[in-house]
Each structure stands twice: as C-alpha cells, then as structure tokens.
Amino acid sequence: MFVLIFYVLSPIPMAIARHYQDSVDSTNALVEVAIFITTGIVVSAFGLPIILAHSPQHEPLIQWGACALILTGNSIVFFTILGYFYLFCGDGFSYDGW
C-alpha cells in the first residue's frame, strides 16, 4: 500500500513546472529540477518493494513473488502516467484529431 503514495506524488513536480512555465519543451532549471524529483520518486517506487523483499530479517517482509507483481504494476502505472503527459500535456494538442 505504500507504493500508492508514489503513484500520487509522481506527476506533481511536472504539473507544478508546467503551471509556472508556458512550455515544458524548453530547457530551464525548473523543468530540470522537476524531472530530477520525478525520477527520484519513480526510482523509490521501484526500490521500496525490493528493499522489503530483501530485508535482513530471518523472514522477509514481503515475498519475492509479491515484489515481482508490484514491479510489474509499477511499470504499467508509470508508463500510463508518462503516456498521459506525452499525449495530453503537449503544446500542440487539440481534441480535433479525436
């Protein structure tokens, strides 16, 4: 359930950067920091289940099968978020093509 926090947090830095800038395509410090923070959130979402499955205790906190399912779900969710930002948040998007 802790991974759900990362799903909510991952689009927030780019949404803030898009709010304070007209175009996200141009390169400036705000976009670079937003990409860096988003990357840290995504890497943390993939790292948390691995850390929980590889805990140093006698019995791991989660099983490796559950870890694999979480990593697969992470891939699907984050590619969906990426697709949304790529498709709907571009500067040249209009609903005329739909």
Rank of each mutant, 00 (worst) to 15 (best):
I50D: 02
P60L: 00
D25Q: 15
V42N: 03
S10V: 09
I50A: 01
R18H: 14
L9R: 06
D25P: 03
F36Y: 08
I76K: 07
H19F: 14
I76P: 11
H19W: 11
I50T: 07
E32Y: 05
L71R: 02
T38C: 00
L30W: 01
S75N: 06
L9I: 02
L9Y: 04
A66F: 13
A66E: 11
T72H: 02
F46E: 01
Q63G: 13
P56I: 00
V33C: 05
Q21R: 12
S23I: 11
I16V: 15
L30P: 01
I81Y: 04
Q63D: 15
V42A: 04
G83C: 04
I62W: 01
V43S: 06
H54S: 13
E32W: 03
W64E: 15
R18D: 09
V8F: 00
Q63I: 09
I70L: 12
H54R: 13
D22V: 14
V33D: 05
A29T: 14
T38E: 02
Q63W: 07
H19P: 04
P60D: 01
L82E: 12
S44N: 13
Y7L: 08
S55I: 04
S23T: 15
N74E: 05
C67H: 03
Q57K: 13
I16S: 10
I16N: 08
V77Y: 06
L52C: 04
S75C: 14
N74D: 07
V43L: 11
P13F: 03
S10Y: 06
A68L: 14
P11V: 04
I76F: 15
A66S: 14
F36W: 05
E32A: 05
I70K: 01
L48Y: 11
P13H: 07
G83V: 07
I51Y: 15
F78D: 05
L48F: 08
T39E: 02
T72N: 02
V42D: 02
A34D: 05
Y84W: 10
F78H: 10
P49I: 00
E59R: 10
V43H: 04
V77Q: 05
A15K: 01
L52M: 09
Y7S: 05
G83Y: 03
V24W: 10
D22Q: 13
I51L: 15
Q21D: 07
T80E: 09
Y84A: 12
F78A: 10
L30H: 00
I37N: 01
H54G: 11
Y84M: 09
I35L: 14
P49Q: 01
A66T: 15
G65P: 04
P56F: 01
V42F: 02
W64S: 14
A45E: 06
A68N: 12
I37Y: 00
H58A: 13
L71G: 01
I16H: 07
I62Y: 02
A66N: 14
A66P: 10
Q63A: 13
W64P: 12
A53L: 00
Q57L: 09
I70C: 10
T80H: 07
F79A: 12
Q57T: 13
A45Y: 08
N28S: 00
D25A: 13
T27E: 08
A15G: 04
G83A: 03
N28A: 00
